[in-house]
Design a binder for these strands. Structure first.
Length: 516
RNA sequence: GACCUCGUAGCUCAGUCGGCAGAGCAGUGGACUUUUAAUCCAUUUGUCGUGGGUUCGAGUCCCACCGAGGUCACCA
């Protein structure tokens, strides 16, 4: 890595030459040292003292000599603006808390430090010490009496006013995006706070956070296609997990009453504004609960997190709409809503077949309930109010192989899907805990697969062994954290809430990575 | 996987009807002790995504490929 050839780019070379010159002439190495006593820029700005500044200014005008009453600060940041004016240099540095101007007067700095300040580049990281004051134009700033280079930036920066605009470049060079577009840092900070808040609330409710395998010998718990990999020493194929569901249920069998996991899932599918191949999900399992218990849990967690972020009642903008997190979530019944929108009962197979013509690929041979589900997605989901989080309860059993059906109406099962902002956020089940029924459903599922999919799917005997050991009635929940974050921070693309979304390799060298 | 749109300097973008490759920022040299996207003077920067084709002549038109953005499909 260290011996990577410098880019023969002229801007890069200009900066490298400057660094070499400074090393020779200013006796610095350009990469700084540990520095104690630094304070964030926002804190330094808050220390500005109007009275002290006035007193100092008055004394200066009167040419009196007094003890400088202005607060002394030591700060660090990346240079985002630089103006030199003869014997003065003004620069603006940025850290995670904001921007602050550093004013450098030739009279206040030693010769080398002033030369450094005068020729500093956009992107360089510096340490500056001095008094908090104002300029004649009223800008609050540090009047530097100490000025050091903490890290030379060799990469040419983006345009200082527009920053990086190209969505691809922003994702590829997120480290640049983060400092040139401050709202990006806000978004990702909010993401971290949201996840932390969810964890605190789950912990407070007595759930235990656990970690289960990311590499699965048998992929399961969802219908998505997995990524495949291989373990050399054991000579076995492995799959990156598509869901942690089956492992978490084993923990319920083992006697852990309330567990959750927040971690990555991997699905080998298309990429769009709401899908990244790896995404963060929370799954929750609670013994002796059911899908209604999971609905109440989900609603209260979402509301509390949104209200914490809003500092009160939460009606948060999302694209063209505002999403109301504080009002009770809308709760619909799958069958009722279907009937209301389409005008016939989903069990009326003839009508379903007629209405679903051309909607799915194998419409002629597909199961009536599968077609009804397609109709629901196509015709009913768009009728939901995107500004109100909406639960849809009790889906058809046929499309829910891990869910327990109702004894008195076995074609439906205890499940909901949650929608908001036009996206599906999550799903919850009253988990199927009858091992014989589960085996039957799995076999049915495998029978309906084409050869390609069947290669990636086998019956998970170890999961069935767990169910056969006896799993208490259980409520289970899965919720897409990236999508929740999108809604809460008003990001309309999942790429805006994932630091490093998957991109195609930029160059040949990335396709064949060397041993770095 | 299909379709639509886009790809011009390090960045942000113009480029008309097919006729010399452009601007701002950034860079370099200079002036300036109160700037605010500082200003002023001087100045450097191109595989017009790649390859082919049409044409006297292609950034511009056509084809293929690569990449991106979007729409759809896939994702119980």
């Amino acid at each position: 890595m260290s011996d990577a050839a410098p880019k023969p780019d002229e801007l890069f070379k200009a900066r490298l030459d400057k660094l070499r010159r400074w090393r020779n002439e200013l006796e610095i190495d350009g990469y700084g040292q540990r520095t104690d006593g630094l304070i964030p820029l926002a804190e330094a700005r808050a220390m500005f003292d109007e009275a002290a500044d006035d007193a100092w200014r008055a004394a200066e005008d009167a040419e009196e000599s007094i003890d400088d009453p202005r607060p002394q600060v030591l700060v660090a940041g990346r240079c985002v603006q630089h103006r030199e004016m003869g014997k003065l240099a003004f620069l603006v540095i940025r850290d995670a808390t904001g921007d602050l101007q550093i004013s450098c007067s030739k009279g206040d700095l030693d010769t080398n430090s002033f030369r450094l300040a005068r020729k500093l580049d956009y992107g360089d990281v510096i340490v500056a010490g001095g008094r908090m004051g104002r300029t004649r134009k009223g800008e609050i700033c540090v009047w530097a009496d100490r000025f050091e280079l903490a890290s030379k930036s060799l990469q040419p920066p983006p345009e200082k006013w527009h920053g990086l605009q190209d969505p691809e470049l922003r994702a590829r060079r997120r480290h640049v995006d983060l400092f040139t577009n401050p709202e990006v840092l806000q978004t990702f900070t909010a993401r971290s706070q949201i996840i932390s808040s969810i964890r605190r609330r789950m912990d407070a409710r007595g759930f235990l956070e656990v970690e289960t395998p990311m590499m699965h010998p048998v992929p399961g718990g969802a219908a998505a296609r997995p990524f495949t990999t291989h373990h050399n020493a054991l000579g076995m194929p492995l799959f990156l997990r598509i869901a942690p569901e089956l492992y978490l249920k084993k923990l319920i069998v083992g006697g852990l009453p309330k567990v959750y996991e927040i971690n990555r899932n991997f699905r080998n599918e298309g990429v769009d504004r709401s899908h990244n191949p790896e995404f963060t999900a929370m799954e929750v399992y609670e013994a002796f609960s059911d899908h209604h218990g999971m609905a109440d849990l989900t609603e209260s967690i979402c509301r509390e997190v949104a209200e914490e972020l809003s500092g009160g009642t939460a009606v948060r903008p999302f694209g063209e709409i505002e999403i109301d997190w504080s009002s009770p979530f809308v709760r619909l019944d799958w069958r009722d809503t279907f009937t209301k929108v389409l005008g016939f009962d989903p069990s009326d197979e003839a009508k379903v077949r007629q209405a679903a013509q051309g909607l799915v690929e194998n419409a002629a041979t597909a199961d009536g309930w599968v077609l009804a589900n397609a109709l629901f997605e196509e015709r009913v989901e768009p009728t939901f109010d995107p500004s109100r989080p909406t639960f849809v309860f009790d889906y058809p059993s046929v499309i829910s192989p891990l869910t327990r059906s109702y004894a008195d109406r076995p074609e439906y099962c205890g499940r909901w899907d949650l929608f908001a902002g036009g996206m599906e956020l999550g799903t919850a089940y009253t988990e199927l805990n009858d091992p014989l029924e589960q085996r039957r459903r799995f076999e049915e599922q495998l029978g309906g697969m084409d050869d390609e999919m069947a290669k990636e799917r086998t019956l998970d005997e170890s999961f069935l062994d767990a169910l056969e050991t006896g799993m208490p009635p259980t409520g289970g929940l899965g919720i897409g954290i990236d999508r929740v974050v999108m809604l809460l921070v008003n990001a309309t693309s999942i790429r805006d809430v994932i630091y490093f979304p998957l991109l195609r390799p930029e160059s040949a060298s990335e396709e064949n990575p060397c041993d770095e």
